[in-house]
Design a protein around this nucleic acid. Structure first.
Length: 355
DNA sequence: TAATCGTGGGA
DNA sequence: TTCCCAAGATT
C-alpha cells in the first residue's frame, strides 16, 4: 500500500471522528481564511483567537479592512507581536481591492503575490477556501512527518524544507486537500506534541518510525541556534499634564510603526549620573531627573531589552523635535505601543491614582 | 541564505 | 530560571 493511502485514510478517519471547533473553520470565505492564517503565523491558537474575532468583527470584509487607517489596524494588532504582519495585512487587503477587483486570487501562485503570504499561507488558503491540491507545511507538519517517517534532515535547512514539502505533497489527499491539511496540523497540535506526545491517541502510531525506534524526543531535528543581542534602553518620560510625549518608531529596527517615549540607547546600563551625562550630550543642559522606573527586562525573539524609564523635565527653552508628540491620556490609548511600553503606562496610571 | 521580526505559555 | 516553540514571511 502506498504511503499516501494508509496515511491519508487513517488521518481522515481520525479527523472526521472529532476535532476542535475553531471560528475560521465555520467558513470558506477566503478573506476570513486569510485573516486567520496571517494571525496564526508563529502564534498559538489560544493567543490568536481573540484577535481573529476582533478583526473579523471590526472588518467584516476585505473592503472594510482596506479602507482602515494604518494606525487603527496596528492598534488592533497591539500585543500580538511580529508587527510586520499587520502592515502587510493592510498592503495585501488594498492590493486585493485595488488590483484584484475585491476578490482574492484563487491559486497558490496568485495568493503568493500578496504581502505577508508565503508558501504556507498560500497553500492553506488555496486548499481550504478553494479546494486546490496544495499541501501546507508548518511546524506541526514538520513534527508529524519527521516522526512518522523517521526523517532526521534538519527542518530549518534548505534540503529539509524541500524534502518535507515534497513528502507533504505526495501525502496530500487531492480529493479533500483542505480537510487533509487541517487534519495533519490538528494532529500535530493536539496529539503529536513537541514534548510528551499522546501516542496512545494517535491514528498513525502503528506506522510511526520514531515511536518504533524510540526517537520521538529527537525528532524533528533543528540545526539553527538563536543568537540573542542585549540592548539597554533609556526612555525619556516627559509628563504633559497627565499625558506623555511619544514618538513613532521608524526604520528597520524592532516595533516599526509603534509608539514609545523618546529613546536613548546605551551600550551598558546607565546609573543616574551616567544618564544625566548622556542626556546632556544628546539634548543639552538644563534637564531635571525627577524619578525613574525599572529596570524592566523584556525578551524578544532575538533580543533581550533592559529598559529604564526616566521621568524628566525639560528646560524652559527646550524645543522638542518635530517627531515628538504630546499625547493626552485619551490619545495614549489610541496608539499602538509595544507590550513593554503598555506595561509602563499601566504602572504610571496606577501611580497617578495613588498620588 | 541566514538573520530577523514579539509575545506568552508550559515544562 | 531557563529553555522551547508556536497554523512563517521577508530581506
Amino acid at each position: 500500500m502506498s504511503s499516501r493511502s494508509w496515511f491519508t485514510k487513517a488521518l481522515r478517519g481520525w479527523y472526521a471522528a472529532g476535532h476542535r471547533d475553531l471560528p475560521w473553520r465555520r467558513t470558506r470565505d477566503p478573506y476570513r481564511i486569510w485573516l486567520s492564517e496571517v494571525i496564526l503565523q508563529q502564534t498559538r491558537i489560544d493567543q490568536g483567537t481573540a484577535y481573529y474575532e476582533r478583526f473579523a468583527k471590526q472588518y467584516p470584509t476585505v473592503h472594510h479592512l482596506a479602507a482602515a487607517p494604518d494606525d487603527e489596524v496596528l492598534k488592533l494588532w497591539q500585543g500580538l507581536g511580529y508587527y510586520s504582519r499587520a502592515r502587510n495585512l493592510l498592503l495585501a487587503a488594498r492590493s486585493v481591492v485595488n488590483e484584484h477587483g475585491g476578490r482574492f486570487p484563487d491559486t497558490t501562485e496568485g495568493l503568493r503575490t500578496l504581502k505577508g503570504v508565503g508558501d504556507y499561507t498560500a497553500a492553506a488558503i488555496a486548499s481550504i477556501a478553494y479546494g486546490r491540491a496544495a499541501a501546507v507545511v508548518d511546524g506541526n507538519v514538520y513534527r508529524v512527518l519527521a516522526r512518522v517517517f523517521g526523517i532526521g534532515t534538519p527542518i530549518d535547512s534548505t534540503a529539509g524544507r524541500r524534502e518535507f514539502a515534497t513528502l507533504a505533497g505526495r501525502l496530500l489527499d487531492p480529493e479533500h486537500p483542505g480537510d487533509h491539511n487541517q487534519a495533519v496540523m490538528e494532529l500535530g497540535a493536539t496529539v503529536c506534541l513537541p514534548r510528551a506526545p499522546r501516542c496512545g491517541e494517535c491514528p498513525l502510531a502503528a506506522r510511526c518510525v520514531a515511536r518504533r525506534e524510540e526517537r520521538i524526543s529527537q525528532l524533528p531535528v533543528k540545526a539553527g541556534r538563536t543568537t540573542v543581542r542585549e540592548r539597554h534602553f533609556n526612555y525619556l518620560c516627559i509628563d504633559v499634564e497627565g499625558g506623555l510625549v511619544l514618538r513613532k518608531r521608524e526604520g528597520r529596527d524592532i516595533w516599526q510603526g509603534l509608539y514609545e517615549p523618546p529613546l536613548l540607547e546605551s551600550e551598558a546600563p546607565l546609573g543616574v549620573a551616567g544618564f544625566r551625562k548622556a542626556l546632556r550630550t544628546w539634548l543639552g543642559e538644563g534637564w531635571t531627573v525627577t524619578g525613574q522606573h525599572g529596570p524592566a527586562r523584556h525578551v524578544l525573539s532575538h533580543q533581550v531589552l533592559h529598559a529604564r524609564f526616566w521621568e524628566v523635565t525639560p528646560p524652559r527653552a527646550f524645543v522638542p523635535p518635530p517627531e515628538w508628540r504630546s499625547l493626552s491620556a485619551t490619545e495614549l490609548d489610541r496608539v499602538a505601543v509595544p507590550r513593554l511600553i503598555e506595561r509602563y503606562l499601566v504602572h504610571r496610571r496606577s501611580k497617578d491614582l495613588f498620588a
